Amino acid sequence: MQRVNMIMAESPGLITICLLGYLLSAECTVFLDHENANKILNRPKRYNSGKLEEFVQGNLERECMEEKCSFEEAREVFENTERTTEFWKQYVDGDQCESNPCLNGGSCKDDINSYECWCPFGFEGKNCELDVTCNIKNGRCEQFCKNSADNKVVCSCTEGYRLAENQKSCEPAVPFPCGRVSVSQTSKLTRAETVFPDVDYVNSTEAETILDNITQSTQSFNDFTRVVGGEDAKPGQFPWQVVLNGKVDAFCGGSIVNEKWIVTAAHCVETGVKITVVAGEHNIEETEHTEQKRNVIRIIPHHNYNAAINKYNHDIALLELDEPLVLNSYVTPICIADKEYTNIFLKFGSGYVSGWGRVFHKGRSALVLQYLRVPLVDRATCLRSTKFTIYNNMFCAGFHEGGRDSCQGDSGGPHVTEVEGTSFLTGIISWGEECAMKGKYGIYTKVSRYVNWIKEKTKLT
C-alpha cells in the first residue's frame, strides 16, 4: 500500500490518463441519441435557420407576430419608411378606419389613436360632414345658397324668414311668412316636400332668348283662358290664391305678392273693366268669414305684352289694390325667389296649380277651390304637342294621358313649387288646347323671366 501511494504521488498524470480511459469505455446513459432527441424537440425550422439574422431580410411573422416588435424591426421587413409607417399605425392600436367614419364618399386613412378623412370636392370637416359648395344638395341650405369668396357655403332665406341657429334652416321672422300653410287642420295635408338634388348652379339658368321682337298675326285659340281631375282644397291650404270678379264672377285667378299687390295673367284683364279681388276665398257660393274683398285701382301688364300681336306672350300683369290686405292664416303671400332659384325650383319637376275653373272641358265651374299636382314636361315634348308657338318664356306641365289639367277660369292662378315646406311661385296658368285632352298640356308663363320686374313694381313704400 505504501508503494502504491508513492507511485500516485510521483505520477499524477498517469492516474488522470487511467481515469479518462475508464470513462470513455463506459456506456453513456444520461444523453439520448440524435434521433430520439429530435422526437422530443420537434420544432419547425425557421426561415433563416442556421444563418445569422443580421444578414437576412426581415420576416413579418418572425419579427412582429411571434413577439412584439419595434418600429426598427418592422422597418427591416418593409425596407421602406412609408410602408412601415402605414403598417405601424394599425399594428400599434388597430384600424381606426374600420367603422368607416368618413361621410359623403370620403376616404379614410388610419393613424395612431386617430384617423384622417380625405374629402371629395365640396366637403370638409373631420368626417367630411361639412358642405362647402352650393353645387351639392344646395349646400344643405333649406332655401338659398351662395358661395363666399373663400368658396364656403353661405345660406340665406327669402323675405319674412331668418336663418336658424344651425345656419342652414329657415324659420319665420314674421307672423305670416310667405308660402307657408298655417291653418292647423290643413298642415297635415301639406304636399310632399321637395329635397334639393345635386345641381350645376353655374349652368342652372337656361341660355334662352326671349323672342321679344317676333311679330306674329293673332292666333285663334280655343278655350285658351284655361282644375280638371283635381281635388277639393281645404280652407287655408292655398292662402296665396285669390279669385278675380268682373263682368262675371271667378273669371280668373291670381296670387298675393304682398298686402297691396296681386300677380295674374295679362290676358285676364281689360282696361276700363272694374275688377274686384277676393282673398281668403274657399267656396265661392258661401260666406265663410275668411274672405277679404278689395278693388283694383291700377293694372300693370308687362311692358312687352301686346294682345294685338299675341294674347299669351309675356302673359303676366300686376294688380294694385285700393287697401292693403290683412295677412292671416287664410290670406298669405306666395314666396318669389330670384331668377336663378325660381328656375331651379321649376326644374324640380312638379308643381301645384289651383283655381275655381271648370271641372271638365266646357263644363261647370268649381264651387270649392280645386288643386292638382302636375309634372313638368320637357321642352321637346311640349313643342311636338301643339302647332302653336311655345315661346321661351312659357313652359308645359300636365299629363300625356289627359284627364287632369287646369281649365277655363283658372287662368292667372299660381303654379307653385314647394321647397322644404315653403311654396314659391314658378308659373302662372296661361293657356292650353281644350282641357285635359290626351297628348295636350297646360301652358304656363315662366315666372323666372319676370321676377325682377315683379319685385321692382310691387315694392311697398
Rank of each mutant, 00 (worst) to 15 (best):
C396M: 02
M65F: 10
T133P: 04
M8K: 14
T287K: 08
I262E: 01
A436D: 12
F87C: 04
F31I: 15
R75E: 15
E288N: 06
E285L: 13
R46C: 04
L14K: 03
V199M: 13
T417K: 01
I316N: 00
S365D: 12
C141Y: 00
I7E: 11
P120F: 03
L23R: 02
G280I: 01
R83Y: 09
R180P: 02
K51I: 05
S385Y: 14
S184E: 11
K247W: 06
I15E: 03
A192K: 11
K260C: 03
K126C: 03
S406M: 14
Q237G: 08
G94Y: 06
V227C: 08
H303Y: 12
E76G: 15
G13C: 11
P120Q: 09
F348T: 15
T81K: 15
W453Q: 00
V30I: 13
D249W: 04
S220N: 11
S148N: 12
Q237K: 04
R358E: 11
N222F: 10
I136R: 12
G13A: 10
G280Q: 02
K457A: 09
A149Y: 09
G253I: 09
F360Y: 14
K347R: 14
V296S: 02
M6C: 15
I428R: 00
A265S: 09
L130D: 13
S70N: 15
E35I: 08
G402S: 14
L321I: 07
E433F: 10
Q167H: 11
W88S: 15
I7F: 08
R83T: 15
V273P: 10
S350R: 14
S169F: 06
Q96D: 08
L376P: 04
E418S: 11
H303A: 08
F348H: 07
T215K: 09
D33A: 12
R358I: 06
V243P: 00
T458L: 03
D95P: 04
F345Q: 02
G351K: 01
Q143K: 00
T389A: 14
Y115T: 02
G432R: 14
R404Q: 06
Y450W: 00
T386P: 04
A337M: 01
N135Q: 12
T209I: 11
L103Y: 07
E10D: 11
A233P: 09
Y444M: 04
F87A: 15
V377C: 03
I15W: 07
N213Y: 09
S107V: 10
Q96V: 06
D111I: 07
S204L: 12
D93I: 05
R162Y: 08
M437W: 13
T215M: 05
I262F: 02
T276L: 05
S354D: 01
Q57N: 10
S354P: 05
C157P: 00
D338E: 08
K387D: 13
I454D: 00
S448E: 07
C108M: 00
I214S: 11
C69K: 03
D223P: 12
V326L: 11
R62D: 03
I334T: 02
K347M: 11
F71C: 04
V273M: 14
D95Y: 05
E434L: 11
T426Y: 01
D405N: 14
Q241K: 05
L346K: 03
T194I: 11
F71G: 15
H289D: 09
I262N: 02
W240S: 00
D223I: 10
D150S: 10
I309H: 11
V353G: 02
V353K: 04
V377Y: 02
C108E: 00
C407G: 04
F345C: 02
C128P: 01
I344W: 07
C119L: 00
C119S: 01
V195G: 13
V199K: 12
L244F: 05
I334Q: 01
E79W: 10
F55P: 15
D223E: 09
E323Y: 07
I112E: 08
A366W: 08
V257H: 00
P239T: 02
D405P: 14
C108P: 02
L14R: 04
T84H: 08
N452W: 05
H314W: 07
H267W: 02
G253H: 08
V257C: 02
C128W: 01
I297S: 07
N147Q: 13
N222V: 08
G106K: 00
V331A: 07
A207C: 05
T218Y: 09
T342V: 03
K109T: 09
E418H: 10
L318F: 00
R298W: 02
V181G: 10
C69G: 04
D198S: 13
G106E: 00
S217Y: 12
C382V: 02
S365T: 14
F78G: 15
L325Y: 03
G230D: 05
L244I: 08
K152L: 09
G94I: 09
T186M: 12
N306H: 09
T158I: 09
E129A: 04
G105T: 02
H267I: 02
F345V: 03
Y330F: 14
P333T: 03
V278P: 00
V227E: 12
D33R: 10
L189E: 14
L460Q: 14
V451K: 03
D405K: 14
D212M: 08
Y22M: 13
R180I: 04
C252I: 01
E76H: 15
A37H: 07
C128A: 01
L23I: 11
C117Q: 01
N328W: 02
K152W: 05
G432W: 06
W431S: 13
M6F: 13
S385M: 10
